[in-house]
């Protein structure tokens, strides 16, 4: 039971990162492998605000989101905006940004990894259906649910969402309707970056901040996207929960292969459903 809860809480952290990435890839065709690095920037900024300066945690989340959004704007305006459809170039930018940001955070925040944040009010534990469980994890789940609902509502029920969805399916038609798809895409990129930054701060409650997150978290987020199907919010949620659960459960079942088993799960699902669980993208 604890293992299941653990999986779900990790799943929600991954959902926060993965959903943004999924939208960026899905709506713009931009393969931003630096998305995990934005998470990392958020985590470090969050550490400065919440731990160094001792300011309230919600402020840390806002600052983390803003910082990641700022970096997101920068790499979008300087690079990705001009690289639509150029995959070689997008990969180069991604790796370049990952390497450079890993160096920069060590420069700014030092080479020691940051321990998980201690935040008043989120530090203790709550009694959940008779189980004692860390408050921070419950908080993460709650944020994840609220955020997921919000995103889903945005995508399914608003005009912006309709444009984004239509843009994924038939960009030509959306453009002929006089809609500036590039603006929508830029906005999405920034929002996705901000969400990654916020996720970094929230995830910092349980994982702290490390220079290696640019790659480590990216990989998990990527598996979420691959499993869930590109551009689908419910898909990202399901993918994230699968990743979280298979991580947490395999610790109990196959302790020495907990990383590997995740990828096996992914491979099996891909063989059965090549387009991911949501099946949004027809690939054959």
């Amino acid at each position: 039971m604890l293992a299941v809860l653990n999986g779900i809480s990790l799943g929600f952290v991954l959902f926060l990162i993965g959903s943004g990435l999924s939208l960026i890839i899905g709506s713009m065709g931009i393969i931003n492998l630096a998305h995990g690095a934005l998470y990392m920037v958020g985590a470090y900024v969050g550490w400065s605000v919440a731990m160094d300066a001792g300011l309230p945690f919600w402020l840390a989340i806002v600052c983390g989101a803003l910082a990641a959004a700022a970096v997101g704007v920068l790499i979008h305006q300087v690079f990705f905006r001009h690289l639509s459809g150029l995959l070689d170039e997008q990969i180069l930018v991604s790796f370049g940004v990952v390497y450079i940001l890993a160096d920069v955070v060590q420069w700014v925040w030092g080479t020691n990894a940051k321990a998980p944040f201690s935040v008043p009010g989120l530090d203790g534990s709550v009694n959940l259906l008779g189980l004692i469980y860390p408050t921070a994890r419950v908080f993460i789940m709650a944020v994840g649910i609220v955020f997921g609902a919000l995103l889903w509502w945005l995508q399914q029920r608003t005009r912006i969402g309709a444009i984004v969805r239509a843009g994924m399916d038939d960009p030509q038609m959306v453009r002929t309707m006089g809609i500036r798809l590039d603006l929508v895409a830029a906005g999405l990129f920034v929002i996705g970056s901000a969400v990654a930054g916020a996720a970094g701060v929230i995830g910092g409650l349980v994982m702290g901040a490390q220079p290696s997150f640019g790659i480590d978290i990216m990989l998990l987020a990527l598996v979420v996207v691959v499993l869930g199907g590109v551009g689908s919010i419910p898909g990202a949620l399901i993918g994230a929960l699968i990743v979280g659960l298979s991580q947490a459960v395999s610790v109990v079942l196959f302790p020495s292969f907990s990383g590997f088993s995740l990828y096996v799960v992914m491979a099996v699902i891909l063989v059965l459903r090549p387009a991911g669980i949501s099946g949004r993208v027809v690939t054959q």
Binding site: A3, N6, L10, V206, P255, S256, S258, G259
Partner: peptide
């Protein structure tokens, strides 16, 4: 005896196990 594989990001499962 619990052994944590390299690259593990979340340690809660080891506490609950």
């Amino acid at each position: 005896q619990q052994w944590v594989p390299l690259g593990t990001t979340d340690l809660l499962p080891y506490a609950s196990n």
